[in-house]
Design a protein around this nucleic acid. Sequence first.
RNA 1: GCCCCUGUAGCUCAAUGGAUAGAGCACCUGCCUUCUAAGCAGUAGGCUGUGAGUUCGAAUCUCACCAGGGGCGCCA
Length: 597
Amino acid sequence: MSYTQTDMFLTEQQTIEAKIKIFCAANDIPLAALDWKPIPYSGEWGISTSFFATAAAEARAGKKIVVPQRAQEIAEQAAGPVSDVPGISRVEAVKGYLNLYFATSEYTRRVVDTVLEQKTGFGAGPRTGSRVMLEFSHPNTHKAFHVGHLRGTILGDAICRILEFAGNDVVRANYPGDMGLHVIKWLWGYLKFHNGEQPAADITKWMGEVYAEATRRLEENPDLEAEVRAVYARWDQRDPEVAALWERTREWSLEGFRQMYAALDVRFDVYYFNSQEEKPGKEIVEELVRRGIATDERPQGGAVIVKIDEALGLAKELFRTAVILRSDGTALYATEDLALVKHKFADYPDLEKSLYLVDVRQSLHFTQVFKILEIAGYEQAQKCGHISYELVTLPGNVVMSSREGTVVLLEDLLREATSRAKEEAHKKNQALTEEQLEVVAKAVGLGALKYPILARENTRLVTFDWQTALDFNGQAAPYIQYAHVRCNSILKRSQVSTFERLNVAFDYDLAPAEIQLIDMISRFPSEVQRAAADYKPLIIASSAYDIAKAFASFYDACPVVQASPEVREARLRLVTATKIVLANALQLLGIEAPEVM
RNA sequence: GCCCCUGUAGCUCAAUGGAUAGAGCACCUGCCUUCUAAGCAGUAGGCUGUGAGUUCGAAUCUCACCAGGGGCGCCA
């Protein structure tokens, strides 16, 4: 099933396909499957299919033909029987392709009407009833939240929005790391240097500073490690003072995260915590050892491991060996992840997929976790998948690290982006009130931040630099938002509501810019499906930009308010449709569509 | 040694195995008395890392190289 803008012309496409089949059967041509695509050249719309596959099959069957020539021949012959399909204005056979052009006025009317009828639902797929969980963001408590974490958070949010819109039931899961060596270090640093202090405004930033100081002090004086180990020991015995401190400070971080997610307009349906998976994880490890799947090397001073390649009888090292419990019996992330997989399916037994959006460095880890459970006979493991994305680094290929202090903090970036946006907005439009400026600054600043992340292939490394991050020109969110604002502007100025009426004819000669714009709009629903199938917000980011670009050309070339009454009414409807699609696309990216800017 | 990702215009990046490989930035030329110029139109810029293969057709699939990055038993 290929999704093209022909979704709106499905009946025509099916009619044509049927006629081609009849023609081929009558002429003894073994027709290969037909693949329909938009005609790639602008100026007119239509769908197109080719006969290369059919011709190639004939050649393989022994017919002495030149494939491209034969494809063209079939296309020419097939053109006849399909020339009288209603809604199709013109048929042509060229270079082995059969191109079918839509009747302009009918096509335009149908596209625009569909958008105006479906409004915020335009582009949405039918509900599939399929429930999918996506785990993303997973920040560490007691640490800073920096631009490196932003990618996973923004990407995860957009993927959820797209999956939902495409027709799935989505469960948004978060999995903060609330216990581990980093937390113990933090607790030690707090007790020693900041005991009794409370976080101020930027909670997460402050938590990060305490952590960075603790690591720095430890590096300066390694003797202090003994004190850290002592804190760990107290934690292991659930020392009331340490446990209480952990709970209180953990809550500070979580409150900081809530504020940050609110600022980013990201939400979650369910939270899991690694501290809760520790015990069940150890139980799974015990079970695996009992069943002989895991090897307990602790008597020999080793850890508990699973030799996955060996268990699968593989000669090549592919899944390698996984360590699932430390030699001292404490839990690793792997221990807890084993339990988490099951925990999720226990909570949501009908999950069709359980996805983990985690950076690429953890690919092997996740394939190991899922594989181990599969070997253990846990069938749900096959529904698990890791979606990986590349890191955000600093210029010079420097990886952001809270430990090294090489980070760009999210708080700083958000502040900088919104203040820059506010400045810019004021410069561009002095008519804006202070209140409007605030709204615009938030929408534009945040959008400018999110878009570059979403408009890039997940597997591609992003190098962060302030100049690019705060560049509001060109292919960026503000360009798309601006197109939305201009739509709104025209509609406000027109002050009429008659364009809401359906069945207005587009009977005048459409300008090339109009044709291009309608073409882009019509493709949006299929782009949503593609984006959902591949977990790629990039497809929506591109689509939104393409629509905005087509509108910008239209805006320049086609007067609306001052056009003659029939043209004006039709164009007002087109502008309304454009505004709706732009808003829908931006919504999928988690970017606001302002009314003014 | 094994596995994964990346290599496309000067730079940053797009491109369902299809017809003519496209944008943005930067550079140059025009366009605000006209729906907001965060804009539009145009010029210029390419042996898609290299070499083979598969295919009617390859930036896209396969293999081998080259270059960069990442991962490989007790970090997360």
